[in-house]
Design a protein around this nucleic acid. Structure first.
Length: 431
RNA sequence: GCAGGGGUUCCCGAGUGGCCAAAGGGAUCAGACUGUAAAUCUGACGCGAAAGCUUCGAUGGUUCGAAUCCAUCCCCCUGCACCA
């Protein structure tokens, strides 16, 4: 007898989180009438999810908060095949043991977002390998394959470019992906009374496939709902920075880098992202926006966004670490940092490394430390006095004098060098 | 298989014997301005601190000298044919 929040779908729509859904408005009343079980799949294509998966993950949580039961499916089987949806080229297959280790990591990661101990609406993590691993080909072809029309599959928008374009092609393996995912839905309907699948809008074809198959196999009516693809106002791809993908795993993207990513959100995107990525109410977000418009200068929205999302993903301690570094580097006086502060910065995930001096120029030293992709860029920065070592500006003329610049006597507390390149890049050297 | 077009530095795209590390645009990095924004302006943008070194699908060749010419090979695109 969970409390069902009948306004869930309306809230999702207000947040701009509904891209498409099946069955007109039937889903709305269906959800309002009782606690339902829904699922969303996450394929193990890497050892961590990235922020692109955050929208469906948080949406699962939104359903749970509204009294529904979420199943997080980790695609131990589908991950072995590869989803061709909107992909421009065939991908290489990962080995079963690699996928298996990724499955374990994703299970843990996904689990952090949903509640497993809340009565009827408790979440579960499932793996589609459990019901596909032992299925034989003939059974699959007769029981599942028979329900799919190749004619329809070919016409799906998601594989169109692979069908039409010469040279890109699609293997039978990837073409079959949709059958596997559809079967998942039917199976979860049978096993868990799961009647709703959510996913990114690129999953629409796969989801409707599952809706159809469930009806054909079990005569059940199930629903699908897709979430929008996250886009940025400037047209660049969401979730990438110069330094690469923003991962959810703290070991791949530190809480500090994660926090900085959100803090740097463009004004044009930030309120939308607040609606997508936080649990603040639509009204609260509107208030923030109104306040920002009224106040001249720096908006507060980015700070709120960074705080909220970092807490969701990395918890209070991760957020605290990210904020400590941010405060120290961007707000406070770095010269005033204590020895334990510096210790903490390295611990908190500020890029750091041991100082190795063997006569190399600064350009190479800093490039090797990862502060720039090539010495050329360090040189450019040196030329423009954009490099600081322990608050002292270093110029190009000192390029060959790394030993003096990094002389032990210049070290903070006899062991630290805090190097700044440009306005945002910091690196801590220890000697 | 035949005919035609093409593979250039992260991407797009000029360049058809020396003046080419290779136009232009985008992306990116840095500076100014700012809010660790946006827009704009400036600089950098194969690697190297420099001397210099390595690139223009691959391999050989012609030449004092090749991204540019020749040969072979690989890949892509467009027609046609073949197969049906």
């Amino acid at each position: 007898m969970a409390n069902i929040d009948v306004g869930l779908l309306a809230d999702l729509e207000a947040r701009g989180l509904v891209a498409q859904m099946t069955g007109d408005r039937a889903l709305e009343s269906y959800l309002a009438e009782g606690s339902r079980t829904l699922y969303c799949g996450f394929d193990p294509t890497a050892d961590s999810l990235h922020i692109g998966s955050l929208v469906p993950l948080l949406t699962l949580k939104r359903f749970q908060l509204a009294g529904h039961k979420p199943l997080a499916l980790v695609g131990g089987a589908t991950g072995l095949i590869g989803d061709p949806s909107f992909k421009s080229a065939e991908r290489k297959l990962n080995t079963p043991d690699v996928v298996a280790t990724w499955v374990d990591k994703l299970k843990a990661q996904v689990g952090a977002f949903i509640d497993f101990e809340c009565g009827d609406a408790s979440a579960e993590v499932v793996n589609n390998l459990d019901w596909t691993a032992n299925m034989d080909v003939l059974t699959f072809l007769r029981d599942v394959g028979k329900h799919f029309s190749v004619n329809n599959m070919i016409n799906k928008e998601s594989v169109k470019q692979r069908i039409d374009r010469e040279g890109a092609g699609i293997s039978f393996t990837e073409f079959t992906y949709m059958l596997l995912q559809s079967y998942d839905f039917a199976e979860l309907y049978k096993r868990n009374q799961c009647t709703l699948q959510i996913g990114g809008s690129d999953q629409w074809g796969n989801i409707t496939g599952g809706v159809d198959l469930t009806r054909r196999l079990h005569g059940g009516q199930v629903f699908g709902l897709t979430l929008p693809l996250v886009t940025k106002s400037d047209g660049t791809k969401f979730g990438k920075t110069e330094s690469g993908t923003i991962w959810l795993d703290a070991n791949k993207t530190s809480p500090y880098a994660f926090y900085q990513f959100w803090l740097n959100t463009a004004d044009a995107d930030v309120y939308k992202f607040l609606r997508y990525f936080t649990f603040l109410s639509v009204a609260e977000i509107a208030d923030i926006e109104a306040a920002d418009v009224a106040a001249q200068g720096r908006p507060q929205a980015q700070g709120v966004l960074a705080r909220e999302v970092t807490r969701l993903v990395h918890g209070d301690s991760g957020l605290a670490a990210a904020q400590r570094i941010t405060e120290a580097l961007f707000a406070g006086d770095t010269a005033g940092l204590s020895e334990s502060d510096l210790d903490q910065l390295a611990q908190d995930g500020l890029p750091s490394s041991a100082l190795v001096l063997d006569g190399q120029p600064l350009t190479q030293l800093l490039a090797d430390a990862g502060m720039a992709p090539s010495g050329k860029q360090v040189k450019d920065a040196l030329q423009r006095n954009a490099v600081e070592v322990n608050k002292v500006t270093v110029g190009l003329e000192q390029n060959m004098a790394a030993a003096e610049v990094f002389a032990q006597s210049n070290a903070l507390f006899n062991k630290y060098f805090l190097v700044k390149l440009g306005k945002k890049k910091y690196h801590l050297f220890t000697c």
